[in-house]
Amino acid sequence: MKLHVNILEVKNLKIYFHTSDGIVKAVEDISFEIEKGKVFGIVGESGSGKTLTAVSILKLISWPGKIMGGKILFNETDLLTMDEKALNNIRGSKISLVFQEPASSFNPVFTIGEQIVETVLTHQGVSRSKAKEITFEYLKRCRIEEVKKTFYDYPHQLSGGTKQRAMIAMALVNSPELIILDEPTTALDATIQVQILDLLDEIIHKENLSILFISHNFGIIARMCGRVAVMHKGKIVECRDTKSLLINPKEQYTISLLESVKALSW
């Protein structure tokens, strides 16, 4: 039996954008693995290709962007060769995604409850009343105080923090094997950010989840992730366990990034 099981292996992934000014190599030949039950971080500045990497895992890239090569192995099956129908069975059920901006990731014309119930019905084959029950349970688990009110609220009626809690509930509701968190707290105020991160930290460890955590904030990555990849201009500059990377960064880019973060700490 293998000791380490990788839930996700990305191999030599290339994503190019075909623009009128030529080809932009947004992600150029990156490889990394996420071990089952571990939190893996990607840190980098804007435009480094981290979000693109995240959405490519669910093949959510549209023209002029195109995946030009590589493999994305999820439980040893290549997602890039899968057809749309098979992929739809994975999206939102085996792999779920939480975006930065909760305001734009919910549909504004449906209530929070309807949207989460829809995800449950699509993937779990349960009755509507059972789906509603499950939704309540997950909203509660994400420490939403007025569960019933939130269920019947439209997205614009909720605060940013509550919306993101509901988003996390939606990501968890089908018990996915991998959750991709793309800057889950960047749009929130500092005091709310810390609440959401505490919640994520608790859920991740309690339920032993496998996570791809994407952030531009080195401090958050350092506290949340066991292993981390530093991305810069579409390439992985350095990829190691977080502690050794923090104590002993080897590449110039990592060193200068860490210096900036530390200069702004106290």
Binding site: I220, T242, L258
Partner: peptide, 20 residues
Amino acid sequence: RSLLSSHFYDIIKNDASLKL
């Protein structure tokens, strides 16, 4: 106090005192 402590996740101290 709560504002200050909310930067817990943001700042990296030089001693790398993390809960890893």
